[in-house]
Amino acid sequence: MIRFENVSKRFSSRKSTTDAMNHINLEIDQGEIYGIIGFSGAGKSTLVRCINLLEKPTEGSVYFQGERIQDMNQRQLRAYRQKVGMIFQQFNLLAQRNVIENICYPLEIAGVKKSQAVARAAELLELVGLQEKAKAYPEQLSGGQKQRVAIARALATKPEVLLCDEATSALDPITTRSILALLKEINEKLGVTIVVITHEMKAVEQICDRVAVMSQGTIEEEGTVRDVFLNPKSETARKLILPDHETEILEAHHMLRIAFDGQSAFEPVISEMTMACNIAVNILGARTENIGGKAYGQMLIELPKDHETANQMKQFLRDRKIHFEEGGGTHE
């Protein structure tokens, strides 16, 4: 549906040039939720802005349903942009318009009659669960409510794609969760393809089907969320999956990172392993999420010095089909 072919973007000023994106190739399929993850300055915001040409690539081609978007004239581009909704970290609502008027804005510029626009806006408000805030102004809303209004506004013209640029980065964890759940619901109910830009692995884990890991303007690895999460191949992916201090632990100790991918709850596994191997396990760190009733997450455990016991532990995990990798970067 969206295809990047050898796309590069260079920002040049008199003093310096920065390559924000280097020869990016990627393909986003219709109906999926595609995540692009990376640290600040990796070029992911530039990438997402190339999809609706808020940034013009300096090289390469971006195709939408087979059409090269850089070849569109101004009028075609505006019509195309109405098919691609976008939400932002800072919400970017019109402060002088109330909620309904904000949602009506894209319909207004698309030439939709006012009565129809208001009816459509009311429908969308219901979808995002803010009917009672129709007459409120953005200043009177919480961050999560503002993002809900922004989502409703982005969906007003029935777009086929929704771009989310760090849409949950300014929100607290609980609100983040509910906004992500809403995006998932929109994807499932309306069939809207969603592109999520984020630096939070959690956001990707919760809703994405596939993910691309970006660093310094290039895509370091790409795949299903499950594969990237269970078997990160790039340094960047590894750092994003493990909180910063734990990366150091991973390098310093001889240890295992056990990943739970929703097939097993973790507690019995560890207890059973300690019993089976007859050894006390030192847990260095753990993080788990309950997503849809399944355990997702990871645990860092120290491996015993004794090789035989260590191998016994690994064999136990292998038998249970539990994904793990050893410290130092070796994969299993």
Partner: peptide, 19 residues
């Protein structure tokens, strides 16, 4: 950011100024 959002929604420059 508000102007960028308006652009992303397909506004023309004149619409951005007036609306």
């Amino acid at each position: 950011g508000v102007i960028e959002a308006a652009k992303a929604m397909g506004s023309s420059p004149l619409q951005i100024v007036y609306k």
